[in-house]
Design a binder for these strands. Structure first.
Length: 867
RNA sequence: GCGGAUGUGGCGGAAUUGGUAGACGCGCAGCGCUCAGGACGCUGUGGGAGCAAUCUCGUGGAGGUUCGAGUCCUCUCAUCCGCACCA
């Protein structure tokens, strides 16, 4: 055994040992309780970055912990292997994207192995293999059969850089999710869609069941994204043409008597018809044209100035027969509701602003209960009063009703008279899953001139991607591949063409972790009974960036799989941890732009000597030149140190600033543990005897106490709170105690001392296992154990031994600390009070005062209230 | 604008239920070891005052509840994130 700590050597040795003993390989074992620990699978970009290291270090620590606690722990890893970078590389070099991808996978797998992560590598998957993506195709056909997948012509988001359409989730805020500087365009395209809206209610309602296990932030973001609003649709007859109606959507039908106009979106069909009929004013035509030309991103930039034009048409309010003008305006959009809104200025901020600007009347129809304002008083500011605080006025037969009651009554009235219905709207749209790219799962449908769209028959799956695609084209490599495209119709046998779009890669990641359960299955995506053992996922760990992307798709997919009979639960992930980003201070020099920290010396640029701008702490990214290469850090410090630093420097959900000094601190700690154990291991190896309690010196008893307290704390911090940072701090404290005990031993060392030392060191080695498994193994072995530590049992703490013998009780005078008294741990409340009063310091502080009240918090504190 | 979060030493961060604020680490200072440096070991380290015992201030700010508030309530400021004309 080496006296000095050489991480590289021991890490390799232990990794080999684990692999040979196959300690991370697991099988379904019904008698044992399972734990499924999952980290979001990476895209095989070629090299791992610090974000990966952090994500997977957290997951690995938890996996080790649960494994040692006796859970049959599934901890798999795979590759989200379809996607654009591979295709772009293929275009650039006119090479095969699969080769690029698999080379990257090999490189990254090697890096993961170098980190020593405890994956069951037999379960590794890559989504770009036909064995995997055939099940994407299978799912598509199953969904088609059930009407959950359909094709329609639609306006879709288009990213010019990706050269493909995008789902709404991938075009949030009008920008491509991969190209945040690139606004998406709108294009008309025939596309495949998954009927998310069928599941919108469930997706929203089931969020309640995730409360507590998922971060509030993610739940809120999903709620907003799904955006359910309950209301009613109302038909308005067009004045002078009873055959024609337009329909509005409103959540506040109770305010409809207060409408002063109806506004249609500039893209609305009614406007088109009006222009086509030649009755539109020049002003209207100009306005509509102008509005249509505005790009979505400019709408945001332009602010919220309301603009509108009257169309010259009128509608009849179905509730009171009032004749109201139809306007078109920039604040009404086609994509939501019916693209038409009633304007109720007195009780809606936006409508108020609009009506003020164009001088439309502002009648009140709601008053605050108890308000003494006249029903026809002018409105200075709009108010909503959407609950019991609002009461209807100026609303004919509905006057006097409270708002909720009125909504119900007026909706019923509209239904009864045939001009309206209750309606729930969602912001979430059906998922556009077609991508006009070649490196993805082929969509398993055939377009037959006679039979239309026909699914590929199941026995012909997978529809494989050709491996000789020509990427050196401006068109679509798949569409230009004749032998791929030209096929026969499964129904009529006649000539037909394959669909040449591929699936959104978010399809791949929507169900991948079910495949880990049963990765070789060639009959089904996975066997339901096997998945029933492992799933749902107990703990999922990944970045926040997927809050409304992957994490909503995978919830949807689970519900679809439930309806297909593959799983029996509604939600796939019990607990979600969104880990923070890995950041680094960035520095800027006027001359040399972004600088690495090592290019800055004493606040000055190393190249030109200019004072650099004080860098902000920002997420590591290549463009900011503030990345740190994990490989380099592993080379310098070892994998254990890098892992330890990642877990210690910040709580997992917070951002973490990479610091070289901090990493050195982690390394120093491991060296400290290494040295003290190697100072002692020969002396305590044979020490297994039973020692009488009375043989332990006070110092030895103190060490034992610290040992058991530390086990308790680490168990709690990791198991219950996922606070790895405080668990590490606890282990550091124990190490400090071990050093103190070592320093206190002079002359004869008793068997009891050796026992206490051995107990402390063994506990420390074990506790280190989840965090720094390699060094933990080495230490465990040097303490005389042949067994593999990471496959051994987590230590138990002895509550008796962890108990303090004495307590230091703070004594307060009127809430301010004045003294501390030492009392036995089993002290009674009365004894605490007596001890406090017996203190000289307390007595002198009390001089001339009278105690009016004494508060004793059992075993914690005494507070004397005195005047 | 709406929604969510976060504000604690020079820095990263502790403080489990309202009960000793600053655990642990970084940094810094001193001592030991050393020819020296590094490494290592030990000690100290929130601010202010004092040789010291000690006193005093202190968790973004202002109030409040309480015997007692970093923690609860009200208002406010700052920063970050999400959504953004959603009818």
């Amino acid at each position: 055994m080496n006296e000095k700590y050489f991480p590289e050597e021991i890490e390799e040795r232990q990794q080999r040992r684990w692999a040979e003993a196959r300690v991370f390989e697991v099988e379904v074992t019904p008698a044992r309780e399972k734990f499924y620990c999952l980290e979001m699978l990476p895209y095989p970009s070629g090299r791992i970055h610090m974000g990966h290291v952090r994500n997977y270090s957290i997951g690995d620590a938890l996996s080790h912990f649960k494994r040692m606690c006796g859970y049959n722990t599934l901890h798999p890893m795979g590759w989200d292997a379809f996607g654009m970078p591979a295709e772009n590389a293929a275009i650039k070099n006119n090479a095969r994207p699969d080769r690029w991808t698999f080379e990257n996978i090999d490189a990254m797998r090697a890096q993961f192995k170098r980190m020593g992560f405890s994956y069951d590598w037999r379960r590794e998957i890559a989504s770009c293999t036909p064995e995997y993506y055939r099940w994407n195709q299978w799912f598509f056909i199953e969904m088609w059969k059930r009407g959950l997948l359909y094709r329609k012509n639609a306006t879709v988001n288009w990213c010019v850089k990706c050269n493909t359409s995008l789902a709404n989730e991938q075009a949030e805020g009008g920008f491509c999710w991969r190209h945040e500087d690139t606004p998406v365009e709108q294009r008309e395209l025939e596309q495949w869609f998954i009927r998310v809206t069928d599941y919108a209610d469930q997706l929203l309602d089931d969020l309640d069941t995730l409360e507590g296990g998922w971060p509030e932030r993610v739940i809120t973001m999903q709620r907003n994204w799904i955006g359910r609003s309950r209301g009613a649709e109302v038909d308005w007859e067009i004045a002078g043409d009873q055959s024609k109606k337009i329909r509005t959507f409103t959540t506040r039908i109770d305010t409809i008597f207060g409408a002063n106009a109806v506004v249609v979106a500039p893209e609305h069909r009614l406007i088109d018809e009006l222009i086509a009929s030649g009755k539109a004013s020049d002003e209207l035509k100009a306005f509509v044209e102008e509005q249509k030309a505005i790009l979505p991103e400019d709408r945001i930039a332009e602010g919220r100035e309301k603009q509108g034009v009257a169309t010259g048409l009128f509608v009849i309010n179905p509730f009171n027969g009032e004749k109201l003008p139809i306007w078109t305006a920039n604040f009404v959009v086609t994509g939501y509701g019916t693209g038409v809104v009633g304007v109720v200025p007195a009780h809606d901020e936006r409508d108020f602003e609009f009506s003020k600007k164009y001088g439309l009347p502002i009648p009140r129809v709601i008053k605050l209960v108890g308000s003494t304002e006249a029903d026809d008083a002018p409105v200075d500011a709009p108010f909503t009063a959407k609950d019991e605080t609002g009461e209807l006025i100026n609303s004919g037969p509905f006057n006097g009703m409270k708002v909720p009651e009125a909504i119900e009554a007026m909706t019923a009235y509209a239904v009864k008279h045939g001009f309206g219905e209750a309606k729930t709207n969602f912001k979430i749209r059906d998922w556009g899953v077609s991508r006009q790219r070649a490196w993805g799962t082929p969509i398993p449908f055939i377009h037959c001139p006679k039979d239309g769209i026909v699914p590929v028959s199941e026995e012909q799956l997978p529809v494989e991607l050709p491996d000789d695609l020509n990427f050196n084209t401006t068109g679509s490599p798949l569409a230009e591949h004749a032998t791929f495209v030209n096929t026969t119709c499964p129904r009529c046998g006649g000539p037909a063409r394959r669909d040449t779009d591929t699936m959104d890669t978010f399809v791949d990641s929507s169900w991948y972790y079910f495949r880990y359960c049963d990765p070789k299955n060639d009959k089904l995506p996975f066997a339901p009974d096997i998945a029933a053992y492992w799933t749902p996922v107990d703990q999922y760990i990944g970045g926040i960036e997927h809050a409304v992307l992957h994490l909503i798709y995978t919830r949807l997919w689970t519900k679809i799989m439930r309806d297909l009979g593959l799983v029996t639960f509604d939600e796939p992930v019990k607990r979600l941890l969104t880990q923070g980003m890995v950041c680094l201070a960035t520095f800027r020099c006027e001359e040399h732009e972004w600088l690495y920290p090592y290019e800055v010396d004493d606040g000055k640029c190393k190249f030109c000597g200019r004072t650099v701008a004080v860098g902000r702490i920002e997420k590591m990214s290549k463009s900011k030149k503030n990345t740190v290469d994990p490989d380099e850090m592993i080379k310098i410090h070892g994998a254990d140190t890098v892992r330890l630093f990642m877990l210690f420097a910040a709580p997992p959900e917070k951002d973490l600033e990479w610091s070289e000094a901090g990493a050195e601190g982690a390394s120093r700690f491991l060296g400290r543990v290494w040295r003290i154990i190697h100072k002692w291991h020969m002396r305590i190896a044979d020490c297994g005897l039973r020692i009488a309690d009375s043989d332990f010196s006070p110092a030895a008893r103190a060490l034992r106490r610290k040992t058991h307290q530390t086990i308790k704390r680490v168990t709690h911090d990791v198991g219950e709170r996922l606070n790895f940072n405080t668990a590490v701090a606890a282990m550091m404290e124990l190490t400090n105690e071990i050093y103190a005990f070592d320093g206190s031993l002079k002359g004869d060392v008793t068997d009891a001392d050796r026992f206490a030392m051995k107990e402390a060191m063994e506990a420390l080695a074990k506790l280190l296992g989840p965090f720094t498994p390699h060094i933990a193994e080495e230490l465990w072995a040097s303490l005389g154990h042949d067994e593999i530590l990471v496959a051994s049992a987590w230590p138990q703490f002895d509550a008796e031994l962890a108990k303090e013998e004495e307590l230091e009780i703070p004594v307060q005078l009127n809430g301010k600390l004045i003294a501390r008294v030492v009392v036995p741990a089993d002290v009674s409340d009365d004894a605490m009070k007596d001890a406090a009063l017996a203190s000289d310091r307390v007595q002198s502080k009390l001089e001339g005062k009278e105690i009016v009240k004494t508060i004793v918090v059992s075993k914690r504190l005494v507070n004397l209230v005195a005047k």
